[in-house]
């Protein structure tokens, strides 16, 4: 058993370590934020910010300039104001979720 993973009622098992760990990341990442959704961070604001930074999904490898602008925008004062964080920790939490959504929209993570 190189990798056995179970979450949200789904079970995955594979002898291929790389494939198995890849699947763990694919499944576990969204679940983290699903667990926190609406509970401690205002994720709707984060999604709006991500859509402003990346209006249409694209592949970062095809346009690194556009990808770089979107990434740099994550920590811009304009986006921070839009997120309205109530403290530094919330700012970091929201920034992490925003980064994840932006990277998904530019095809860097699944």
């Amino acid at each position: 058993m190189p990798v056995k993973f179970e979450a949200a009622g789904e079970k995955h098992e594979t002898e291929d370590l790389v494939q198995g760990l890849g699947r763990v990341l694919e499944k576990a990442y969204p679940l983290i934020w699903k667990q926190l959704d609406g509970l401690i961070i205002r994720s709707e604001l984060v999604r709006e910010a991500a859509e402003r930074l990346v209006p249409e999904p694209f592949d970062w490898k095809e346009d690194t300039e556009k990808a770089a602008r979107a990434i740099a925008g994550i920590s811009s004062p304009k986006i921070t104001r839009m997120l309205e964080p109530r403290n530094d920790e919330e700012k970091e939490m929201m920034k992490a979720l925003l980064t994840r959504i932006v990277l998904e929209r530019i095809g860097m993570i699944k």
Binding site: N87, E89, M93, K95, A96
Partner: peptide, 16 residues
């Protein structure tokens, strides 16, 4: 560069 997709354990705990 400081763009983490998962908050650090420290941030998580401090926030909670």
């Amino acid at each position: 560069l400081g763009y983490d997709t998962v908050p650090s354990q420290k941030t998580f705990e401090e926030y909670l």
